[in-house]
């Protein structure tokens, strides 16, 4: 019920935790936190906490891209993280979140998948990004995207011996060319807000998830939320995302 108060405040130009409309909560990023993963990062936006772990293996490439490595993004909305998450196969929201992260990374060509080919058509590196939600307190999408790119940036390719992986020994860093940043711009009434917390998330009219590459190119868009977006709002939303992405990219 705190959301009604959050709404009342936003109409008065304020937020429930005193932030400005375009201000994120305190961001904490710690990398290389899991020794069983080839790359890892924990991202906190205030109380929201997400861990991304990168596991790298080898396998057969997809038939339509025989000379490129494999990238797979998967998210678990662990029932631990929130009373509304349930055990079982990934929910609609978890799958959507994974796919938005995936598109941001894939379409920006952030990972140089062509450098992950070992034997064309036979053997390539496969990169799994697993996103684990630890504490759901709003804006999981941006937190998960940031954790994923931060984890990929510190991932290392395992050492190979006769095409088999030697666990615990590394060859070189995973080739990462760009740092795409996902910024979700939300609209409440006539106001645009960033990084909504849990209570604010319940009062959003509409939102647009925007992935921005280092050169300000937009690499992925997803309109979310049940309400429609106005044509005239899009430019402002893109500008906000481009601006904010620079700030977050510096933290990675």
């Amino acid at each position: 019920m705190e959301e009604l108060y959050a709404l009342e405040l936003i109409h008065k130009g304020k937020r429930i935790d005193g932030r400005k409309f375009d201000e994120f909560r305190a961001i904490e990023i710690s990398t290389n936190i899991i020794s069983t993963a080839e790359g890892s990062a924990k991202v906190k936006f205030g109380e929201t906490e997400v861990i991304a772990g990168v596991k790298i293996g080898t396998g057969k490439p997809f038939p339509d891209t025989p000379d490129r490595g494999i990238l797979i993004v998967n998210t678990e909305f662990t029932p631990m993280a929130s009373p509304e998450f349930e055990a079982g196969p990934p929910s609609e929201n978890a799958v959507e979140l994974s796919r938005i992260v995936d598109r941001g990374i894939r379409e920006s060509d952030a990972i140089e998948l062509d450098k992950l080919c070992l034997v064309e058509g036979e053997n390539v590196f496969s990169t799994f990004v697993d996103i684990h939600i630890i504490n759901h307190h709003g804006n999981l999408q941006d937190a998960a995207s940031l954790a994923s790119i931060a984890a990929l940036r510190n991932a290392r390719l395992p050492k190979l011996e006769n095409d088999k992986i030697v666990r615990g020994e590394y060859d070189k860093p995973l080739p990462v060319a760009f740092t795409p940043i996902n910024i979700t711009v939300s609209k409440v009434g006539d106001n645009f807000i960033l990084d909504p917390n849990y209570d604010e998330e319940k009062i959003l009219d509409s939102k647009l998830s925007i992935s921005v590459r280092d050169d300000d190119k937009i690499c992925a868009l997803q309109k979310q939320g049940v309400n429609e977006i106005k044509f005239e709002d899009i430019e402002r939303m893109l500008d906000t995302a481009i601006e904010k992405s620079k700030e977050l990219r510096k933290l990675v």
């Binding site: 890892s40 055990a87 697993d130």
Partner: peptide
Amino acid sequence: IRYNMAPFSVNDRKSPGP
């Protein structure tokens, strides 16, 4: 009670789910 391992918690990725 549900005990679950994160996919990245072990050397060879654990596929998600029970």
